[in-house]
């Protein structure tokens, strides 16, 4: 714990010190004017206890405000990072199509102008610039999707809880209740915390969108045995939403498949989610029934993979 400066110590224990000083001043004057020691002692104790409780209340309120500010800052940062992937895919699509048109148009001009060296040179420079722009867009896509894994051993429950805070506003807005069932004593997982957080943020967002009129978001954590006897942690994210028809479930992880109405939705969320789970040597399955909701079951191996 960092050492507090004198000013910080006074701020932290200010009321208590004031109470002690008041008692001291009162005691000094009263001692001079009368001899009632018991009354004076009782009053002094009461004032000090009062000061102590008020100080504790103020300190804990201050700590709660700081925690909320810290969480909101993290939320804003993570939302930016999570949005970057979607923005990159959208930008790539919107920019690469005009670039494709430019390149094809230039190809035609090159053929038509092959006898004019000067104009041919101009068209080749245009083509080079268009392909350079394409490389820049490819770089943006790479940044948003192929971030190297930073693996560390940790409990999965706090990671899931943090992902929940990212969608807290939407949960409250749509009046969705969260039902958590976390088994005790779960083994730690070797994982990239940010990528796993992205996975659960995506799953929670899908569940929320499937329950426009409210419902229950269920999160269950339990230990399971793997195929080769290795322990694993099973996470079940369930919703009481619209459900997905069977013929669409088998395509649910296709990179461009989406059940969402917006034509701007590129349908990359679940394909990226599956990619992250695959990188962690885990498994993901979806069970759903129209009108009865959806269950997403993720299994992640514990310990070394």
């Amino acid at each position: 714990m960092p050492k507090l400066s004198l000013r910080q110590q006074i701020e932290k224990n200010g009321l208590l010190l004031i109470a002690v000083m008041m008692v001291g001043i009162y005691w000094a004057f009263d001692y001079i004017s009368s001899g009632h020691y018991l009354t004076r002692t009782l009053i002094a104790v009461l004032v000090i206890v009062y000061g102590f409780f008020i100080q504790t209340l103020i300190n804990s309120r201050k700590a709660a405000i700081e925690e909320t500010q810290r969480t909101q800052k993290q939320l804003a940062q993570s939302e930016k990072l999570a949005a970057l992937g979607a923005v990159a895919a959208g930008v790539a699509h919107e920019v690469k199509n005009p670039l494709a048109i430019i390149v094809q148009g230039v190809e035609f001009l090159k053929t038509a102008l092959r006898d004019n060296a000067r104009l041919l040179d101009v068209t080749e420079r245009i083509e080079k610039s268009a392909l350079r722009a394409d490389n820049i867009v490819k770089g943006l896509l790479s940044y948003s999707r192929e971030i190297a894994l930073k693996m560390e051993e940790m409990d999965i429950a706090p990671v899931i809880d943090e992902a929940l805070t990212f969608v807290d506003h939407q949960l409250r807005q749509k009046r969705i209740n969260v039902k958590k069932q976390y088994a005790p004593g779960l083994p730690k997982i070797i994982m990239d915390c940010d990528q796993i957080k992205q996975v659960f943020t995506n799953l929670f967002t899908n569940a929320i969108e499937a329950m426009p009129g409210g419902g229950i978001l269920g999160i269950r954590l339990e230990q399971a045995g793997g195929d080769n006897g290795q322990a694993s942690v099973k996470v079940v994210v369930s919703d009481t939403g619209e459900g997905i028809p069977e013929d669409r479930i088998r395509r649910i992880f296709d990179p461009f498949f989406t059940t969402k109405e917006s034509e701007r939705n590129t349908g990359l969320g679940l394909s990226i989610t599956k990619g992250i789970i695959d990188k962690h040597r885990g498994a993901i399955e979806i069970e759903s029934e129209p009108g009865r909701g959806t269950r997403v079951v993720i299994s992640l191996p514990a310990g070394l993979v």
Partner: peptide, 23 residues
């Protein structure tokens, strides 16, 4: 949108069809 390195995992899902990446 799909990059060259990602085709491998999707070829099976698209029944072995091929991709050309724009531009």
């Amino acid at each position: 949108i799909v990059k060259r390195g990602e085709v491998g995992s999707t070829e099976y899902q698209f029944g072995g069809n091929f991709f050309i990446f724009k531009p």
